[in-house]
């Protein structure tokens, strides 16, 4: 299955893209998405337990992802 992964701010700079598509097994969890991203070139600049949102809601790293989900890796936020 394919999931869309969104990257922002310093993480987008590290990976060199603001959006990537990953092909994953159907029982994949958030932590599997993270391992794949961290295996990319410069991926280690993304921490092993960053904040993550699935379909625009904060998610724990054991949450199951589904085909066509939007998984966002969220750097420490700095709004306000």
């Amino acid at each position: 299955m394919t999931v869309r992964v969104l990257l922002f701010a310093s993480y987008a700079d590290a990976i060199g893209a603001s959006e990537i598509a990953l092909d994953l097994p159907s029982d994949a969890r958030v932590r599997d998405v993270l391992s794949r991203v961290r295996a990319m070139a410069s991926g280690k600049r993304v921490p092993d337990k960053p904040m993550v949102a699935v379909n625009q809601r904060y998610a724990a790293d054991d949450e199951i992802v589904h085909s066509n989900d939007e998984v966002a890796i969220i750097p420490p936020v700095a709004g306000g």
Partner: peptide, 13 residues
């Protein structure tokens, strides 16, 4: 203000 500083996915350069 305290919650949005913790939770809003916004970044500043």
């Amino acid at each position: 203000i305290e919650e949005l500083k913790k939770r809003l996915p916004i970044w500043k350069r």
